[in-house]
């Protein structure tokens, strides 16, 4: 039986803050509409995309690049030593794609798709934990980006980012861009921005990312952006209280949402008191984080923290 609070998972050592210059990206679903569009944006940003996988398209070269396309992930890893899988496979087939990359030994998989049935993800999450050393970020997430290493593994607009020392971890995509926009506008750069995704059953948690930021010498402060629903923010608060050595600014959105209604993200639904915004805010303040008064004050709050 899975443990109630989940064990601290040990992963193969990947890279200091998940991705960097040495990341070798493989794109599953590279020839699809979304996959090809975003692969090109990632490559423009400077990301080292080494392989694509689309069953039936093996042997071809992706678009006007020199990226080889393979039929299977196993073959792609053997030929290119890819170590991150960015997954654009559509929701109905995404679980299969995640397991394929995990079985090929890829240490970090990033499924972007929204709408993967939770009943597909429950056994996948269990399998990854119990039988592989693969870390999953997402699904239903924008991915992650390390601006200083020119490594963008996801769908975020690259141009708004700037290299620096603030880490961002968030359940939301566009709200993360909002945070980045505010920080860059004030001249405050980012170390790594991580979107953990809006689904109820997902891989990497706030705690996992906070732990990495805590140990990362390139990160001085962290922005944590949570939402209504679930208890992931409370778990983050416990970790921050017990172990976090760096200042954290926290924002919870959805205070104005009525209970019982799903606010877009499958995970953003208030069912029970713990899922409410005020409970999460309370826990994060008690843990010593600096509350961000409104979504317009993300940049200002961090500026104040760093100015101290």
């Amino acid at each position: 039986m899975p443990q109630e609070s989940g064990p601290v998972r040990e992963y193969k050592k990947t890279m200091s803050i998940l991705v960097n210059k040495d990341s070798r990206i493989l794109v599953q679903g590279i020839t699809g509409k979304e996959g090809s569009f975003h692969t090109l944006r990632c490559m423009e940003y400077g990301t080292n995309v080494v392989a694509g996988v689309t069953p039936g398209r093996g042997g071809s070269i992706f678009a006007e690049t020199s990226v080889p396309v393979f039929n299977t992930v196993e073959e792609a890893v053997r030929e290119t030593k890819a170590n991150v899988a960015l997954i654009f496979v559509p929701a109905p087939f995404a679980a299969d794609a995640i397991v394929e990359s995990a079985d090929a030994g890829i240490p970090l998989v990033v499924p972007i798709a929204e709408g993967i049935p939770p009943h597909d993800m429950v056994p996948v999450a269990r399998y990854l934990d119990a039988s592989t050393s693969t870390r999953m970020l997402g699904p239903n997430c924008p991915g992650l980006i390390s601006p200083g290493d020119k490594c963008k593994v996801g769908i975020m607009p690259g141009a708004i980012h700037m290299a620096g020392k603030v880490g961002i971890v968030s359940r939301s995509g566009t709200l993360t861009y909002e945070a980045v926009g505010q920080l860059s506008g004030l001249g405050i750069g980012q170390s790594t921005c991580v979107g953990i995704g809006g689904d109820p059953v997902s891989g990497t948690t706030f705690v996992d990312v906070l732990r990495l930021f805590n140990e990362d010498t390139d990160t001085d402060a962290v922005v944590l952006i949570g939402e209504i629903g679930g208890t992931k923010e409370q778990e983050a608060a416990e970790f921050i209280k017990a172990e976090m050595k760096k200042p954290v600014a926290s924002l919870i959105v959805g205070a104005s949402a009525p209970p019982g209604k799903r606010m877009g993200h499958a995970g953003a639904i208030i069912s029970g008191a713990a899922g409410r915004a005020d409970e999460k805010v309370k826990a994060l303040i008690a843990a010593g984080t600096s509350p961000i008064p409104t979504p317009g004050d993300i940049g200002a709050t961090i500026q104040e923290i760093l100015g101290k």
Binding site: L175, E227, G264, A268
Partner: peptide, 10 residues
């Protein structure tokens, strides 16, 4: 975006 939409409502 769902997160930005909730933030906007707030």
């Amino acid at each position: 975006g769902a997160g930005l939409a909730m933030a906007t409502m707030d």
